[in-house]
Every structure is written in C-alpha cells, then in structure tokens.
C-alpha cells in the first residue's frame, strides 16, 4: 500500500478499499482518455475497462500520452493496456477493441460501477449517456474544443444528463492543445475518484473551463423535466 501513501490521508483506508474494489469503464483512450486512465490507475482503481476501436496515428501524439511511435497503426487498446499495465501492475485491465454502441454496452456496462466518457464525438457521447441512464450508472462526461472544456457529472435521476441538453450530432471543431486535454482528463478522473470514495459534496455537477482566461466555474444542473432520465 506504500504506492498509495501520499493520498491515503485524503481518502482514508475505506476510500482506498473502495477504489480497489471499483470497476470503472473508460470509453476512449485519446486526449481525454489518456490522462484519465493514468490518474485512475495511479489512484489504485481495481478494475479498468478500456474501450476504443481506433488505431494509433502520428497526429494523436501531441496529446495522447498512452501511445507512442512504437504503436503507430496498432490498436489503441493494445497500447493502453501495455502502458497502463507497466504503470500499475496491481490493477486489472480489460480491453474492448470495438466501437462503443448499444450492443457492446448491453454486454459490458452492467459489470461496471461507473463510466467515464472520453470520446471525441457527439454520437458516442449520446450512446454512453443513454446506457448510463438505462443501467443507472454514474457517468463522468468530458469534452474539449479549442481553448474550452467541460466536465459533467451525470447521476441518473439526480443531476442533468447529457441528453437533457438536447444535443444533436453536431460538427466538432477539432483543434486542441495536449496540455488542455490533460486538465480535462485529470478533472474527469478526479470527479470519478470523488464519487467512488464519497467525497463529492453534491453542490455541483457541471464544470466549465476556459483555458484562454484560465478560469474554472461550476454549477449544479437540475435535470430537464422533459428528459427520460428523470424517473
């Protein structure tokens, strides 16, 4: 347990046990998924599921710290498993080299406690949100574009879900700085750890980050009355 000594006073032995027993599914191993997976593995989350259907490309390497030149054209899940496996060999890793959709969700989501959505498109965000609501799983959503990012804590029936916004599969502006994906991904991991260890105070569920102004704001989002997430 010496590995976790520097955060044990913050979360206590019970918190560390909760992390060790936790099963977290991380969807996407790119700019957001890389720091998220490193941080969750570092904290000692016992089982990490890793979903990604992409292969590593050279243009990924400005921000996707899980991957490297040696893995170009290899499945990102292979790269992620090797990198995280070396980083913390005490945790269990399960990889799924396919697109996250309703069929895959039905097979794997029930076995996880929490989902962290680190994808780069609205269609998969909508699918992840739908299965979080369906299986009553807490979802930590995150996104980034240009010099802006957000993190949203979705607790079905309690906080607004991603569908509450009525988001459609909009065009995405894909310019991102690697350093800023690190901030949002780590923030997603932090909120996941706070949920798992019971130290989230419930006062907020949405965090907006403006990297240009170096500002962070938060608020609690009540669910949309017309959304199916509010049971």
């Amino acid at each position: 347990m010496e590995r976790y000594a520097r955060h044990q006073e913050l979360i206590g032995a019970a918190g560390q046990t909760a992390l060790a027993k936790a099963r977290v599914l991380v969807i996407g191993t790119g700019g957001l998924g890389s720091p998220t997976l490193f941080a969750l593995a570092a904290a000692g989350v016992g089982t990490l599921g890793i979903v990604d259907d992409d292969v590593v490309e050279i243009s990924n390497l400005n921000r996707q710290l899980l991957h490297s030149d040696a893995f170009i054209n290899q499945p990102k899940t292979d790269s992620a498993k090797q990198t995280i496996g070396r980083f913390n060999p005490d945790i269990q890793l399960k990889t799924y080299s396919q697109r996250f959709d309703a069929d895959l969700a039905e097979q794997i989501v029930p076995e996880y406690d929490m989902l962290v959505d680190c994808v780069d498109n609205y269609a998969t965000r909508i699918a992840a949100n739908a299965c979080a609501v369906k299986y009553n799983k807490t979802l930590i959503e995150g996104g980034i574009e240009g010099m802006s990012g957000f993190v949203q804590i979705v607790i079905p029936g309690k906080t607004a879900c991603f569908n509450c916004f009525g988001v459609e599969d909009n065009e995405i502006y894909r310019q991102v700085l690697g350093a800023s994906t690190g901030i949002i991904g780590n923030l997603q991991a932090l909120e996941c750890i706070k949920q798992l260890t019971g130290i989230w105070d419930g006062s907020y569920s949405y965090i907006a980050v403006d990297f240009r102004q170096c500002s962070m704001e938060r608020m609690f989002l009540e669910p949309n009355d017309d959304c199916g997430c509010k049971k």
Binding site: I144, C164, I172, M219, L221
Partner: peptide
C-alpha cells in the same frame, strides 16, 4: 446549451418573466 433557473432546458423552451437564463458552452472533441 441552456439552463433556466438552474434546470437544463432545450432550445424550444419559451422564457417567462424573471427567468434566470445561463448559456453553457457545448464542446465535443476529446
């Protein structure tokens, strides 16, 4: 995206007197 009096609403929602409307950014890359 839109939040009215702390509750998330869609674009078709019609505002009422004294509503407190907040506009949130919507970003989707990763």
């Amino acid at each position: 995206s839109f939040v009215v009096n702390g509750r998330v609403q869609k674009g078709g929602y019609t505002v009422s007197d004294h509503d407190d409307v907040k506009f949130l950014m919507l970003v989707g890359a990763g």
